[in-house]
């Protein structure tokens, strides 16, 4: 697999100054909202065949970052989640594990243990949101401390939020520097997912600029949203980010992953997102290493669909586990 280390590439010089970064980001092709949404909708009408559907559902399960991000999270809740991530379907051990569990930094340790206890160590990653998630409104040193704590507790992946205030104020270099600093804090052991909170960036032009900004700063993944605002992952904003990683790899040779998060609840939706991946970025991204779903309730729907495909009967909520 290609590495994603922020090495020197064709675009290294665009981050030399605030001005050059701004010129670069504003020089990216604009996005026509109507055309983008029409394309996303049109890809949503693809239908995939039954054998491919089984593959798609297993692939989707293996791409889930099983997430709990509540103020009321407890070790008990996280332990249950860790066990479920390793063996999502208690009645069918052939069900693939999810890609990761995603928790707050203080629960990383608990998650690690739970996964290990269920036999998923090394297989199911632990991702931790950090940098004063979800608002990101804290001094840089606090954010970095947040990251370091998560990494120290064993997080394999860090999901940071960008400073949307700085971005919307046009202070792109500040956002860039912050992502760089967090990347550095992740060291070599943790992959960095950069959350844009697309609902707050609001325009597609902003989402494209943020995508390139994040990738230039060394993001291993670009991620739509926190799940905490009104508009989270949509087919259109995910399609746009897939175009960005596709174009970034063409320009630099560096491959970056994409993670839509929030709002994806059904298997049907998940398959539509996989179609977007397939037809936009291509098969190189159809892998949990490069594409994730940030979700919680999605997993149960995927499992019910999986049971339906295996048995021919429709399943029900009593046959999957409550979280």
């Amino acid at each position: 697999m290609p590495t994603t280390a922020p090495t020197a590439h064709a675009l290294s010089d665009v981050t030399a100054s605030d001005g050059s970064l701004r010129r670069f980001l504003h020089g990216l092709p604009g996005v026509d909202a109507v055309g983008l949404e029409a394309r996303a909708a049109s890809l949503g009408t693809r239908s995939i065949k039954t054998t491919a559907k089984a593959y798609a559902i297993d692939l989707a399960i293996s791409m889930v970052d099983l997430t709990t991000l509540e103020g009321a999270d407890t070790p008990g809740k996280v332990r249950a989640l860790g066990a479920k991530a390793v063996h999502p379907d208690p009645t069918d051990r052939s069900a693939p594990a999810t890609a990761a569990v995603c928790v707050y930094p203080d629960l990383v340790g608990v998650a690690k243990e739970a996964i290990a206890a269920a036999g998923g160590a090394g297989k199911v990653k632990v991702a931790s949101v950090a940098t004063a998630f979800p608002a990101g409104r804290a001094p840089l040193e606090v954010k970095l401390a947040d990251v370091r704590a998560a990494v120290a507790a064993g997080a394999d992946e860090v999901d940071m939020v960008i400073d949307r205030g700085a971005f919307l104020a046009g202070r792109y270099l500040k956002v860039y520097d912050e992502v760089r600093a967090v990347k550095e804090a992740c060291g070599t052991s943790a992959r960095l997912k950069v959350i844009f909170e697309t609902g707050e960036l609001s325009t597609y032009d902003n989402i494209r600029r943020a995508s390139w900004l994040g990738m230039l700063a060394g993001a291993d993944f670009i991620k739509t949203s926190t799940g905490k605002v009104a508009v989270n992952a949509t087919p259109a904003n995910t399609l746009l980010m897939l175009e960005a990683v596709r174009d970034f790899r063409a320009a630099t040779g560096v491959q970056v992953g994409v993670k839509p998060a929030g709002g994806i609840r059904t298997s049907k939706d998940a398959v539509k997102f996989l179609v977007l991946v397939n037809e936009t970025a291509g098969e190189g991204w159809l892998d949990p290493h490069w594409f994730r779903f940030g979700a919680s309730s999605l997993l149960n729907d995927l499992l019910m669909q999986r049971q339906k495909l295996a048995t021919g009967r429709y399943s029900g909520p009593d046959y999957v586990t409550v979280d």
């Binding site: 026509d32 909202a33 949404e37 608002a135 697309t198 707050e200 609001s202 009104a230 508009v231």
Partner: peptide, 13 residues
């Protein structure tokens, strides 16, 4: 002419 939405904004925290 295409129009489209002004944007899909929304913060709830």
């Amino acid at each position: 002419h295409t129009t489209g939405a002004l944007g899909a904004a929304g913060s709830s925290y």
